[in-house]
């Protein structure tokens, strides 16, 4: 009888830890998914840029330098391999875009162009999305980190790596919406 109770208790404990383990896995996957959502949004931004450059070219073809800078920054961002590299490249891209939009101020026709306006809204929306994707990642990562650090989950969460939070923002990336004012 005593043995049975002992086994029962052990089974319950095992079930409890299985539950914790599964919730850790779920939280980790959510954090990972959050991370990949950031990439999705960055890619979206890259895809919008060629269109924008084409549109601007139609009105301000002689502003070669600025346009070139945007194209170069974009290909650098697309080709970036490591997160550090990507961060830097995205920052450069943001700066270049900022210059491009600042330049558009001098071309009333361009500023009135519907295509340009919609691209501008799309880009600033993408900018926001990048921000919100980071925010969602941070939320998911915080939940995950909390889960793996609290007792008794910390007894079995050795194989679960701590998720890094996005504390450093790539500052220049935020320049696109700013230029809208």
């Amino acid at each position: 009888m005593g043995l049975l109770i002992g086994v029962g208790v052990l089974v319950l404990i095992a079930l409890y830890f299985i539950g914790i383990y599964n919730s850790l896995v779920r939280a980790r996957n959510e954090a990972r998914n959050g991370w990949s959502q950031i990439d999705v949004q960055l890619k979206r931004r890259h895809d919008l840029i060629p269109n924008l450059v084409e549109t601007v070219k139609g009105y301000a073809a002689h502003e070669k330098e600025t346009l070139e800078a945007v194209i170069q920054a974009r290909s650098a961002a697309v080709g970036a391999k490591t997160p550090g590299e990507a961060g830097k490249a995205e920052g450069m891209l943001g700066m270049a875009l900022g210059n491009l939009f600042a330049l558009s101020e001098r071309y009333p026709d361009l500023k009135a162009n519907e295509n340009f306006l919609s691209l501008q809204e799309e880009l600033s929306a993408t900018e926001n999305r990048i921000g919100f994707a980071r925010q969602a990642y941070n939320d998911a990562a915080t939940i995950y980190n909390n889960k793996r650090e609290v007792f008794p989950a910390n007894l079995i969460s050795g194989g679960f790596e701590k998720a890094e939070l996005f504390e450093i923002e790539i500052a220049a990336e935020r320049e696109v919406p700013k230029v809208e004012f």
Binding site: A102, E105, K111, L117, Q120, E121, S124, E127, N128, G131, P177, K178, V179, E180, F181
Partner: peptide, 18 residues
């Protein structure tokens, strides 16, 4: 780029950004 900022001319015509 707030009120009266450098590029204030666009404000109003464009939706506010984040």
């Amino acid at each position: 780029f707030g009120e009266g900022g450098m590029l204030g001319a666009v404000e109003g015509a464009r939706p506010r950004s984040r």
